[in-house]
Design a protein around this nucleic acid. Structure first.
Lengths: 335, 335
DNA sequence: CTGTTAGCGCATTCAG
DNA sequence: CTGAATGCGCTAACAG
């Protein structure tokens, strides 16, 4: 690998001149500039980023911390990072361990953190956020100064609820993961609240038997299957007729079980998912909420880069638009 | 951020001594060692990796190149990397552009590349592989000196085929993505060949009308739906009764369409997926091939680290074990 | 055993 | 405009 010294030697100039040509900071005579550019081309020289960062004492690396990653979101983050000349470094973490993240700041590898689907106690991330550039993407922990990019979970569910209520549904149900002592699953709380809010507005009562928050961690899939089995044990006229699920996975598990139990979807019960990730795998396909995962990842990196480069960020909380997608699981005329 | 000099000053020793204590290379008197350790603790010092790498002229960063990423595989890679003290940096690439990858070598950011689900022409990656440490994970381009971690796609499909043939199925079909001029989709080829091999061995003919390789890129989901529609147009007794699909997604799309068209699965036709990624979302659930994604990612990083650290790698091609999972889409007694 | 010194690759003073 | 010299944070070779 050619170094800046090789280039300087070949061009017959000093390393400083090479650096100046490449960074287009200072004026260099056309003659020398050409000599340098020729030498660069001949050697296939490319500045070593490590050396540059060390010298400039700057850091253009973003640490992505997550316990699980959505491909589209990561792709969006990668896209924006490349565009801005930043690099992404990766760290998987268990839900309750973010010490590793701190390590990357301390050892100089990263200059900012993007938390994807973060879950943790407020105090920890707040403390971290006060000291370092941090932005949360999708799932987040809510506190006053938090920087985040997400969607309005409650509004999305409220829209679904309104739609189903308009169609005459009255016995609503909700299935989603439960929060725990040490942390809140924000998206699940928000989605449940969206349902409650919409029903309250219309004066439709919510039977608390039908609000199921299964224990976490654990398989949401099997939990949803069990819930369906319990409902099947009820007399048909007592079962919910509008089932709002916190994810496509949950909706799929529940719906397939209900169908096996003899129910007809959407005739006997409408059912909705969330994410539009697995919605088309179902039969009938799921009505769901489409999230702009790619854009969320990209927008998150853009905000983080702004913070890292010292700019004042006016919008610390960005909520992107979701989209309701209606399909056969709520509309009998569709597939 | 405290530097090694701060530590040295506080401990009243030289930076070299601090470095020695921290790297446990040379002998240091207990007295000074303690002084250093105390200073390190007090300052919360952690060696700057950038400086260390620069000084050692070594690179412990692995570039992950991919056009799409499986969460488990990435998690496995991350796990092994952390274990070995390596870092993962990320680059999404379109299928036909790996110039970006080269860039990371040239600018010193990465010391090795892990290609996830790589597709490209042999010559390009072969040329790259001759010069730099490179390992391919899962999908791969096959050439003499290629380093890769994958599974035996052909064997897996052959096992499925044998199983279905034993159960009396005779009219086999295959649906998978098609290769293109400039590159081969290795896994699709291998899976189709696995079917052909198994049938040939038993003398069961394969109706070429039922070998569908849809154009790529494009939505495999919709292509599979269309294929199902075409088959539904045939008289019932002419339709395939054993449908081998190259992925769970394809199997789901095809099966749901056949069911909507009035067929009963698995009575009228058995159907199999691949990956065990979406298999349980189906109704009935899919018989499929489970791939050890996490282990593949981890093993790939381990091999790459061996190459990067100059060790002789005896196994350049590692094939991990797959697992056949039988479910309701082929076995009427199961869910 | 320990401190001093010289780089690793680059950008950036400071003189000229 | 340009080159020599310094430092980013750390390790390793060299003396002591």
């Amino acid at each position: 690998m050619a170094t800046i010294q090789d280039v300087a030697k070949l061009a017959g100039v000093s390393t400083a001149t090479v650096s100046r040509v490449l960074n287009e900071n200072y004026k260099v005579s056309d003659k020398r500039r050409q000599l340098v550019l020729d030498a660069v081309r001949e050697l296939g020289y490319r500045p070593n980023i490590i050396g540059r960062n060390l010298s400039r004492s700057e850091n253009r690396t973003i640490l992505v911390v997550s316990s699980w990653i959505d491909d589209d979101m990561l792709h969006g983050a990668s896209y924006a990072a490349k565009e801005l000349g930043y690099d992404l470094i990766l760290s998987y973490t268990t839900e309750e361990d973010d010490k590793d993240a701190l390590k990357y700041f301390e050892n100089g590898l990263a200059g900012g953190i993007m938390f994807i689907n973060f879950r943790g106690t407020d105090s920890r991330i707040a403390k971290l956020g006060a000291e370092y550039p941090i932005v949360q993407c999708a799932e987040y922990v809510d506190f006053p100064e938090a920087c985040l990019v997400s969607i309005r979970d409650d509004d999305a569910i409220a829209e679904l609820t309104d739609m189903l209520a308009d169609e005459g549904r009255r016995r609503f149900a909700f299935i989603g993961p439960g929060s725990r002592q040490n942390y809140t699953i924000h998206y699940a709380e928000a989605r449940e609240q969206g349902l409650r809010r919409a029903l309250q507005k219309r004066g439709i009562p919510l039977d608390e038997r039908f609000v199921v928050r299964y224990p976490t961690p654990g398989s949401s899939f099997e939990a949803a299957e069990r819930t369906a089995d319990e409902w099947l044990a009820l007399p048909a006229e007592e079962r919910p007729d509008a089932i709002i699920c916190a994810s496509d996975t949950i909706a799929l598990a529940c719906m397939n079980r209900l169908i096996r139990g003899g129910m007809s979807i959407p005739r006997d019960a409408a059912i909705t998912g969330f994410d539009n990730r697995r919605a088309v795998y179902a039969n009938p396909k799921l009505t769901t909420v489409d999230q702009p995962f790619f854009e969320m990842g990209a927008e998150c990196v853009r905000m983080l880069v702004n913070i890292m480069s010292g700019k004042e960020v006016e919008e610390k909380r960005i909520f992107l638009d979701h989209k309701i997608i209606v399909r056969g699981s709520t509309d009998p005329t569709l597939e």
